[in-house]
Design a protein around this nucleic acid. Structure first.
Length: 443
RNA sequence: GUGCCCUUAGCUCAGCCGGUUAGAGCGCUUGUCUGUGGAACAAGAGGUCACGGGUUCGAACCCCGUAGGGCACCCCA
């Protein structure tokens, strides 16, 4: 490191970038717990792990996120190459599938748990560096694949105990056909998606007004919206839209896909949580088919997961079309909910046992600690033999360690140890073997 | 990217209309207690009042800028 005099004794301010965070041990353990549950769900469906570099050529990343590209971190390296920090995990997946076609049998089912970066303005549950937990199926055009992704989404949220979430499901092409049916130019589809998406928040009149402002004819905007609202209110929203649109092969295909998804979901154990919501649109440009989003009402952080089918993204890197569908779980937002409702129990602190010692008995204590580890206990060996036993016990209880094992000179002489329960204060002296047995029985 | 609010000890906060040496609780350190923590008591450490500039005889307090945090948009996980 540099040896400039001003850096030597704490003159430098410890700073951290806006929207970036340190994950301290307590928070980190919760993150790992949640990640572990997601991974277990993904693997239970036979999904394989994947990781990719955090940096990509900028041109790999651009042209997929539409308006959102201004949120992408980019820079030039020392060789003049244009580099970007990945914005999501979906584009890297597309690159990987296109690049390693010879080694990836399709359908490819992979999961990817890793950080992504967006230069957004931070808020609760919104950071510039955040983790996504993605599960995708590439090379499977069936609605069954979409349904399985939805099932994985539901199972994941259930695994961490999220109490009140809803998975809204819609279809990009269905919305597009509704717009055309109402007389809206196809080029304005993006405007329709954005406006319609706000219906629940701002109400029908404001949605129409916004569409008109975006260049849509007033009667057409009102007509499209009326259909969506009436469909939402009807018992059979899909049937209502089908009857209204009449003969439209594209819309019929979309409707059939949705129908199949909803037929299969109960058999996958997902009932009630997933609902058709024709007003859901989603922002990312690359979605082309079914789209979905998991939202929670409390706390108000909006969507905790989102996804859908993207027909052409992989093809943009390859010489052929490979369709894919997948979901992104937002780790930070899910953690917010888990913390808000205290959904996950603690994991019992950093260790099960703290071995306390004192000068002259360090080697004995170290060998005792090894025996506990071999017996399967997470065992911390005190690093402060010169502090009083009291201080060491205090350290242990502060770290949430349940048991202290004292191995000092007296214990070494008798080849025993003292086991102390730091919660109750009870203490007994016995052999290491006996302590291990009693702890194993207590579990 | 736009608008609004906030920033005083490690943490949570007090600090009246600008007026001498900026306070509390918790936490921390030490002692009562030389191999036994959590309690009690006592003492102690710890602050360029986010940072930089300005107004003023005088600024934690007023003004401007920057950084960080929050909220609402926008968008999203």
């Amino acid at each position: 490191m540099s040896n400039d005099s001003e850096g030597k004794s704490g003159n430098r301010k410890p700073q951290i970038l806006k929207g970036f965070r340190d994950y301290l041990p307590e928070h980190m353990r919760l993150r790992q717990q949640i990640i572990g549950k997601f991974r277990a769900v993904f693997e239970s469906h036979g999904f394989e792990p994947l990781d990719t570099p955090v940096l990509e050529y900028l041109e790999v990343l651009t042209g997929k996120a539409g308006e959102n590209e201004k949120l992408m971190y980019g820079f030039e390296d020392h060789g003049g190459r244009k580099i970007g920090l990945r914005y999501d995990l979906t584009v890297p997946l597309a690159r990987v599938v296109a690049m390693h076609q010879a080694h990836i049998p399709l359908p490819f089912k992979r999961y990817h748990i890793a950080p992504v970066w967006r230069a957004e303005k931070p808020q609760r549950g919104r950071f510039r560096e955040f983790w996504q937990c993605d599960a995708d199926i590439a090379g499977a055009p069936s609605a069954l694949a979409d349904a399985e992704i939805l099932a994985i989404l539901g199972e994941s949220l259930d695994a961490v105990g999220l109490p009140n979430y809803t998975i809204q499901v819609s279809h990009r092409q269905l919305l597009a056909r509704v717009a055309v049916w109402a007389g809206i130019e196809e080029g304005l589809a993006g405007q329709v998606y954005r406006s319609v998406d706000k219906l629940a928040k701002i109400g029908p009149d404001a949605v129409v007004a916004e569409m008109v402002e975006g260049g849509v004819e007033q009667p057409a905007a009102a007509k499209a919206l009326r259909l969506l609202v009436e469909a939402s209110a009807s018992d059979d929203a899909l049937g209502f839209i089908r009857d209204s649109l009449g003969d439209d092969p594209v819309a019929d295909t979309a409707l059939a896909e949705l129908q199949e998804i909803f037929e299969v979901l109960p058999s996958m154990g997902i009932t009630g949580k997933a609902v058709f919501d024709p007003t859901l649109a989603r922002g990312l440009d690359y979605y082309t088919g079914p789209v979905f989003e998991a939202v929670v009402e409390e706390p108000r952080i909006g969507s905790v997961a989102g996804g859908g089918r993207y027909e052409d993204l992989i093809g943009s890197f390859a010489n052929r079309t490979i369709t894919a569908t997948g979901v992104s779980l937002g780790l930070e937002r899910i953690i917010e909910v888990v913390r808000e409702f205290d959904l996950l129990p603690g994991d019992g602190g950093s260790a099960d046992v703290l071995v306390v010692t004192m000068p002259g008995a360090a080697a004995y204590a170290a060998s005792v600690a090894s025996q506990f580890r071999q017996a399967g206990f997470r065992t911390e060996l005190s690093s402060q033999p010169n502090r009083s036993v009291g201080d060491q016990l205090k350290y242990g209880s502060k770290k949430g360690i349940r048991f202290a094992v004292i191995g000092g000179e007296a214990e070494r002489e008798s080849q025993q140890v003292a086991l102390k329960d730091l919660e109750s204060g009870e203490q007994r002296t016995m052999s290491v073997h006996e302590v291990i047995q009693s702890l194993q029985q207590a579990e």
